[in-house]
Design a protein around this nucleic acid. Sequence first.
RNA 1: GGGCGAUUAGCUCAGCGGUAGAGCACUACAUUGACAUUGUAGGGGUCACUGGUUCAAUCCCAGUAUCGCCCA
Length: 1027
Amino acid sequence: MLEKNYDANSVEPRIAKKWDEAKAFAAGAGAREGADPYAIVIPPPNVTGSLHMGHALNNTLQDILIRYQRMLGNNVLWQPGMDHAGIATQMVVERKLNAEDKKRTDFSRPDFIDKIWEWKEESGGTIFNQLKRLGASCDWSRERFTMDEGLSEAVREVFVSLYNEGLIYRGKRLVNWDPHFETAISDLEVENIDVDGHMWHFKYPLAADPETGKPATYEYVEKDEDGNVTLTETRDYISIATTRPETMLGDGAVAVHQSDERYAPIIGKLCEIPVGPKEHRRFIPIITDDYPDKDFGSGAVKITGAHDFNDYMVAKRNDIPMYRLMDTKAALRADGAPYAEEAAKAKAIVESGELPDENTVDAINLVPDEYRGLDRYDARKKVIAAITAEGNAVMTTDEEGNPIPLVEKNKMQQPTGDRSKVVIEPMLTDQWFCDAETLAKPALASVKEGRTNFVPKTWENTYYNWMENIQPWCISRQLWWGHQIPVWYGPKPSDVVAAKEHADLVNAGTDLNVYRDAAWLRSIARFEIFAMHTFQDNPKSYSSVLGEVVDVGELDSWKVVEVESPEAAMHHLTSSLIEGKLEYPVYRDPDVLDTWFSSALWPFSTLGWPDKTKELETYYPTNTLVTGFDIIFFWVARMMMMGNHFMKDDAGKIVEPFHTVYVHALVRDKDGQKMSKSKGNVIDPLELMDKYGTDALRFTLSIMAAQGRDVRLDEDRIVGYRNFGTKLWNATRFAEMNEVKHAEGFKPEDAKLQVNRWILTELSKTIEDVSEGIEKYRFNDAAGAAYKFVWNTFCDWHLELLKPIFNGDDAAAKAEAQAVAAYVLDEIYKLLHPFMPFMTEELWAETAESRDTLLCHAEWPKPQVQDQAAADEINWLIELVSEVRSVRTEMKIKPSLEMQLVIVGASDETKARLERNDAAIRRLARMSDVSLGGEAPEGSAQIVVGEATVCLPLKGLVDFAAEISRLEKEIEGIDKDLKVVGGKLNNEKFVANAPDAVVQENRDRLAELEEKHEIVNEALQRVRSFN
RNA sequence: GGGCGAUUAGCUCAGCGGUAGAGCACUACAUUGACAUUGUAGGGGUCACUGGUUCAAUCCCAGUAUCGCCCA
């Protein structure tokens, strides 16, 4: 006998163990002979991750699909794995070191990476155990990690291929720089946050006329919309507005819109940046461009190409030098020569009118000596103070009429790092980029041409929008943890080779061949002198610069070695030349790749690519990708780009990584707020599983996962669905008490009793609904159909209707009832298994002495019995009983009081039904007797069911006034419906235009309503006459 | 500024050209007979607003309002 309550906490680990021991989730487990493959790759959680509600929803939905497909007998693989999560992981380990009073830079790079691997072994991947607890039926034996050797090989393969195709390149670009982690990040990792900012207005004085030496002036004229002059004044400056005064130090120009008449007189003239030592003030040109907005600020903008994305474009278009002002921590630069020298270089550039190469410009540090090393915000304060003190701030007046600097408050969007939460600094740096635009084209076509489909479809627009406006993807990160970029450089900067491994560096056809450049080699002689000069007296220091030297291989008559840095390479080359050896040193690019680069390969790298494995052949392309919309750009789009580029069939045709992308919603709290630690509204799925059991959580998430809507999770809902589990548990317990047992060889079609044929028919319908719901990713419909069937059909009615049979004397009926109940319960376990795997697996085992398979491998139900007559009969019975109950309650008749039922005007069919269901009616409607009568007994309440009038003789019990009012109310309702239906049918246009079926439906309904109206009206007259 | 979505019962949400639904909450009653994690019954809705299309609109279209998200 089952326990009275289901104890999730003891059952779940036991069932999990059972699955594990049976290797129930191994790829292909439980598959039919010759089955179709069905594969899903898990969105790899971060190795640092812990299960949150988003994971719970995401993996529950995947598990439903996977378990369903497995039960259909398909060859199923759910591929699990984890992401190395570059920044997040490095952050976690650095934080741990900080707690021990150590920091990353106390370690060498390899030692620090070892520390991370140690951390991973100890505490990484707890999320896998949490996913197992959720019941995720992944093939855990195939767990992969983006940093493991196989996946790393795939990363190198892809990088080198794309590099050789010119789709990956290095360049100096303006990128989003995270000053906390001191690395570049991609656009997607930047969050724009609304903040209250300030806009300062400053005067840039015009340069003196070069010919006369006199201060330059112009007539500044402002007009209103109608062209009337509103202001005229003579100015010797141009006024600019800026939210970032500290970047003025790096200005290369002032720009105005070409159509802005106000500034037309001074286009091409020079103006002074009003900050820094007076004797070294820099002058910059006033230029025109499309970018400035005439109506914003003064209409004139300063152009700081190295620290602003818009300015960068303007500077590019107009050959304006871009001066970098900050270091990797976003403090003002302290490198280079004293300011006076550096400013002179900038002056020379302006005067020559020729733009030197970008590295030369980048080397110039235009931060005045007094500002060097300052944090960017401290520098801002000092710059503002200095300009204001000098009288170059645009002034206004305060409330009392005193002059004050004009500082506008303005709402602005501040870019912040999604991990670090610090303000992102646009920085001009050397980075690696992936040509996303080229890769996006086929990926776009795949969706447009329907080879990959988003569900719900509306997400396709989001995808198009992004893919059509895609920017180069910055893939390099200045971190230590990640896939190091497989590019080696020789001592000469132009010597660049991408290689999967050392051997490829010295293979035939390598690009590593600068040593063949005799002229260049001769020039190396210079370094000989340099090296001797530097290290002669201090050989120890020499070896410390050299660092480790690793043999790479032979190339021509040279020995190629790998060293640790560009400096080491140069010294090594020099020293080997001194010693008369032909040793050619290379060093590897220190950057690592964006974490999402390896995730982009996930659907094929996890299956063994670039090797041609059996798994790859079987399970690629995968079927469905289940993900949240927040990573469509980060992940889905990039998998499409990489998958389409690298995965082709034998005919060279693209094979997309998946054919369906199911995008589910975000889980929010019950008030619709996004869950976040700072808001303190995070609901921990693990706590919920402890409290209500995993199945309750899973069922709740499934039934709430309607397409296109966020899931607002309310704990009360979980309580409700926990109760649903209990209901099923107790239904099974009840069955057990009545010796309901799985009957070997029972065929549903053999059932004779209407009540059984009815439930089997309802079951068929439910099987269709649940299957269709899952197939169409309408998880809420699927779960809802199962819920309704189990509780409102099977428990509320079928089991109730079986009670008189179980308690009766008809042995054959009893045997059939037992067999059918057992059969239906088995089918229920199967239907619910994808949603509630633990409880159903437990019940499956508990309800038979032995089973051929685990429930997770049992065959998915198929509709068997369709018996409309039985369905009609029992639905009639349900209506009858419900009506009687309703009237009893309304008439305030004690439930314990047994009454007599007299049916008037019954057809032959109704008579037969009454006979067949006599016991059930008496039990469920609490009647002592059911009889047929010619007319309604005096003092009856009367109910119209179909053609018959059901009379409850209530003489002495019933409140006739109440009964009259009840019947009047009913007639009122019927009249209302009659009016609607009749109105339609009287409308010629309706009859002419509506589909025949609809017209007929309304005709039938009208007839039905009219008949009912008549019968109820008769009943009403009768009651009135009793009164 | 551009785009997407939402607005249905007190709450959380389904639905969707032709009888407006669920769960929770609420009210009344019942019972320890599988289940109080229960049963029976009940109340509760101008389907945001304004127009339009249609024989017919909660549903389609346009506009308005409010809210949310994404992108600049």
